[in-house]
Write a protein that binds this DNA or RNA. Structure first.
Ligand code: ZN
Ligand code: ZN
Ligand code: ZN
Ligand code: ZN
Lengths: 164, 164
DNA sequence: CGCTTGGTCGTGATAATATTACAGTATTTG
DNA sequence: CAAATACTGTAATATTATCACGACCAAGCG
């Protein structure tokens, strides 16, 4: 199993997360001959400010504030679409929000742990979950194309805080 | 594993599905001393017209058409909230749509199979999926409170049609 | 029975999220 | 360079969901 849960929920050198994400993005764009334009990079950068997902309109707000001029929805949605297409970010359906993907290079079933307390989200790639889902679907004669697995609950630090 | 995939995707006597759902709803409301008012029953009835989920505004439309007078969003959202609360329906986050629950009485992890071709949705309760999710979350120190699992793909009949 | 209370409903307004359409600009390609 | 392609700016609009407030209704009580 692959997961960024330890970093996502604990104190860590987040600057490394950011740097790694941007480097991977640049590399991936180069491979695919896709253009990581300033807008797109800004959006990705914003999404990597933390491990908390951002709604599209929050991004619009922050981008407007940063650039000084009014950024309109299509600008941001287009950047989001681009980043989604490349697998650099994910959309969280239960939150209507977006988050950077910590390991865009490896094949992974999108499986997210959403802490309802601190709002941070970790991404896992768990073969056993994937296998169970595919097996159960198969049993029902169903062909799996895309999985959406979003688990709401409490991360370790927030469990400890709540216990007090 | 519990599932309504066989009925959801195949020809069947859907009138029985509808009747069973309404009967269960009435019983559950009686138990909980909750009132299954005409509006609430109408909404549930509409959701059980088929195994395809309905968006809130589709419900508003149909309810308006059926009653002859304009039904406004809060009316329908209130009914949906009530039915969700009682576990009689589910909300599908990836579709922003609602669907009747085929087995509200048994404890179940909400696990849905969404056919992208015919639009029908089946609900499963699979222990192995549930176990895998909980196990993987635990490994990450995460306490699971609510699962959202929505699988997009093709149901058996639609696989066969597509293969041609 | 009338009164009170809590839940339900009608209605207008508004919030939050996302898309369409079209014109203009920049970048790549030949 | 010219043409084709990709990207951006902008206004308008679509879609989904909530808020606020008053009226109404139904059950429980004196
Ligand atoms: Zn980090
Ligand atoms: Zn937390
Ligand atoms: Zn049926
Ligand atoms: Zn189908």
């Amino acid at each position: 199993m692959q997961s960024n849960s330890t970093t996502a929920y604990q104190q860590h050198d987040h600057h490394r997360c950011l740097k790694a994400a941007l480097a991977q993005a640049r590399q991936r764009c180069a491979e695919r001959k896709a253009r990581l334009t300033p807008i797109r990079e800004s959006v990705l950068h914003l999404l990597w400010q933390s491990h908390r997902p951002l709604g599209a309109y929050k991004i619009i707000e922050q981008l407007s504030a940063a650039s000084g001029k009014r950024v309109l929805p299509p600008t941001v949605y287009r950047a989001l679409d681009f980043l989604l297409e490349l697998g650099l970010i994910h959309r969280l359906a239960t939150l209507n929000a977006y988050i950077g993907c910590p390991f865009p290079d490896s094949v992974h079933s999108d499986y997210f742990l959403l802490c309802r307390e601190c709002g941070s989200v970790a991404e896992c790639s768990a073969e056993n979950v994937n296998d169970a889902i595919v097996a159960t679907a198969e049993e029902a004669g169903f062909l799996v194309e895309k999985q959406t697995v979003e688990i709401l609950g409490l991360c370790t630090p927030c469990q400890e805080k709540t216990r007090k």
